[in-house]
Amino acid sequence: MSIFEALKTIDPKKAEYFKFKFPDLRYDQSKPLKTEDDFLRLVERKTINPFLKWEKSPEYKNLIQLYLDTKIADDYKEIYQVVAKNAKSGDEKAIRLFLTLQVDIQKNSKTAAKSFEDDNEAEVVEDDGLVLD
């Protein structure tokens, strides 16, 4: 499950708070960031205290894990680009690391491909014979 899917399953005000805390999750990055007052008006609250309390919950901690997973993917891409550049210039350590990264990437891509296959199988709906005109 991605962070975006998880945010759809929780209370919308909590989801807005999470996006307020981690603005890189917002869909429209061209809009200016919300201030705390803007956020409180949006969720119709007077204080941020209930959200601070929620930050101690297992639900919030699980969301943090999913969020960090997306950040790791971005970091992995940046590291790969640096290592690939250094490997191409002949750096022996970079070449070894590049080959190790290649093996990891291939394993991870197989796992990712399987998750898409599982999603596609779940989407198959049996025909109930109902015809709409």
Rank of each mutant, 00 (worst) to 15 (best):
K88P: 15
L68P: 11
P58Q: 12
I95A: 07
G90D: 13
I79V: 10
L52R: 14
K71A: 04
K93F: 13
K77C: 07
V82N: 07
D91S: 06
E92W: 11
Q65Y: 11
Q106P: 01
W54I: 00
S109G: 02
S109C: 08
A94R: 03
S57A: 06
N62T: 03
K77E: 09
I48T: 03
R45K: 12
K107I: 12
D69F: 00
L52Y: 15
K53T: 13
E55K: 05
V103M: 13
K107P: 08
I105K: 10
I64T: 01
K53M: 14
W54D: 00
A87L: 08
V103G: 05
Y80N: 05
Q65T: 04
N49L: 13
K46M: 02
N49V: 10
F51P: 02
N49W: 14
T100M: 15
L66G: 01
Q65V: 07
L97F: 13
I95W: 09
L68G: 07
A73D: 14
L99Q: 14
V43M: 08
K46I: 00
Q106E: 15
D75T: 08
Q106D: 15
I48Y: 11
K53H: 15
K71P: 10
E44Q: 12
L52G: 11
K71G: 02
K107V: 12
E59Y: 07
V82C: 05
L66A: 01
E55Q: 10
